[in-house]
Nucleic acid binder design. Structure first.
Lengths: 340, 340
DNA sequence: ATGAAAGCGCTAACAC
DNA sequence: GTGTTAGCGCTTTCAT
């Protein structure tokens, strides 16, 4: 390699503990213990070691440490897409919770594909990661067997329980009920929904919640008015078009998240439909853009950053060895803006 | 730990290569080579090894591999904040470029603080990361000496060259010139700017570009009209307020990025100022929300995803051992919407 | 309070 | 084509 002046430079040999020990006139054991503080060291030697460390520019080799201890100080965050603002916020929350303990977090994008999810789980055991937090799109509990066998704690962030795994969720039931109640009062009778694939954590739970609320408030949410798709803006535009082109379209549409709702908003505008007078629209998550679009999106606030940090704290407990299954449920909240 | 049924379960011993070798009746060398393919192995033994691997559920221990080879297959992405959509996009681009090679990327949020930046750089050498891509807020070339000494490739994503380091940038000069030209034609004469701290890669370059363009087109960009701050929405609202409360306010404001521009937009609305008739506003980056706010934000498109993947490709080259300094410059482009 | 030494699981000379 | 073996740099038991 070349340095800043274009001259060839040797890569320096890394300085090891043995080097420090030699320079300080002590054993590597002593060096190790001044670093870890796990056993008392005579002040004189302590100082000698510190001096040698700074003089030589020694840095503890974390991978050797990991090989020895079996702990890597890194956790994986496995999500559909970091470019989705919801997950970016969640990632931030997780990292904030983990930083005091100096964990690294590697973020893994699955594009909501099962193969990718599996691959990253496998990676986690191969790399001896200390934990994983995941928002699964297609995984079932059995898929985590290898992790469990390897003793790697998993916390899942999802709406719905995954048999035996730690869970961080937000309970949207109350907020959804309120939203649907509001719709009913506004005179809506036919509700449509844009949601994820059937049979997945990303598809069923929110739909069920809306279905139940619709029943309670006397709205119709017929199967013909639920359209399945990805959780993207594009899916939102496609979804609204399909719904509003039905012979008997809904007057209100619930969207699985804000991204799809925003797509729906665009599509409505393109079709010349006014929101909420021609179609009411409701999102989920309350990502930042929700309040930036016009009309401002009514949505169900799902606190991504808090979810992330809750996942982090739970993970830390598990890594620390505290066993047992936990389910932490965050508060969700209807935020009424201009689209319903 | 407890398994899904609540029963206590032992953590299984990891299966090692030695186990596989024993089961297959070969040496660990052979196992290693069937895995790496770095030397031919007799088909019969190959099959025996494969069989043993699947039978025992063996997984290569990556950290042992790293200790031995000195390569960790992970790189760091060091940025101010993953919750900023621009960086989230960049992260995605980087990951997409790196995935075929199975690199892990750990994302590190610095909050644009020098201490954090330094800390993560140090981490990179301690963990023997294979490379780092960074958008520095405060670092100077000397800060990278330890990485260079350790032979860890660095690519920086910034507007301005950092002496001796690989750089991925976009050249905004042309687009900024166009934007300012447009402003001049619209009759603007006093231009203000919201920008980062002086003396930093986040502060100076874009300001200089605007200053030069202003000069060329006969606009004034006096020091009294440049306000320094963070690159956040909040800084945007504060900034616009300060500027528009001057005795002699600007008629147009250039913002260092879209987030601040959006903050400015909000502040303008709150102050009852119409955009662009009372103040024209221009952003930078063209993150997704730019086209979602009303009025739609005119901005300079800086392709985050492409930048990220360019960083990834460059890093791969360097890790592969190709030396030399590169500077890749992406295309930037004025996108005219409704705010200027 | 300190040190010697045995590995953690793997790779890659170096023999054969 | 295959195996033996010496480490990579650290932690930690065991002895002193």
């Amino acid at each position: 390699m070349t340095d800043r002046n274009g001259e060839v430079r040797m890569e320096q040999q890394p300085v090891t503990m043995a080097d420090v020990a030699r320079a300080a006139g002590v054993s590597v054991t002593t060096v190790s213990y001044v670093l870890s503080g796990k056993r008392p060291v005579a002040p004189a030697k302590r100082d000698a070691v510190q001096a040698a460390i700074t003089k030589l520019g020694f840095r503890l080799n974390t991978v050797a440490q990991s090989l020895r201890t079996g702990r890597s100080s890194t956790v994986a965050l496995i999500i559909p897409d970091i470019a989705n603002p919801f997950y970016a916020q969640l990632a931030r929350g997780l990292q904030d919770a983990l930083r005091p303990d100096k964990y690294h977090v590697v973020v893994c994008n699955t594009n909501a594909e099962r193969a990718e999810e599996l691959l990253y789980l496998d990676d986690a055991v191969k790399r001896w990661l200390d934990g994983v937090v995941i928002t699964p799109s297609w995984l079932v509990p059995d898929d985590f067997d290898a992790l469990q066998a390897a003793g790697i704690p998993v916390v899942v962030s999802a709406d719905t329980e995954m048999d035996g795994l730690d869970l961080v969720r937000a309970d949207s039931q109350g907020a959804i009920d309120q939203a649907v109640g509001h719709l009913a009062r506004e005179g809506h009778r036919r509700l449509g929904m844009l949601v994820g694939p059937a049979g997945t954590p990303a598809g069923d739970p929110r739909l069920e919640l809306y279905r139940a609320a619709a029943g309670r408030h006397g709205l119709d949410l017929p199967a013909s008015l639920v359209v399945r798709g990805k959780h993207t803006r594009e899916a939102g535009v496609a979804g609204l078009r399909r719904l509003m082109n039905r012979k008997n379209p809904p007057t209100a549409i619930a969207c699985v998240n804000d991204l799809t709702a925003i797509g729906a908003l665009e599509a409505a505008e393109q079709m010349g439909l006014a929101v909420p007078s021609d179609v009411a629209l409701i999102g989920h998550d309350d990502i930042e853009v929700a309040s930036l679009v016009r009309p401002r999106l009514s949505t169900i606030r799902y606190p991504a950053h808090e979810v992330g940090s809750a996942c982090g704290r739970l993970l830390l407990e598990r890594i620390g060895g505290r066993a047992g299954q936990a389910e932490v449920a965050l508060r969700t909240q209807l935020v009424l803006r201009e689209t319903i």
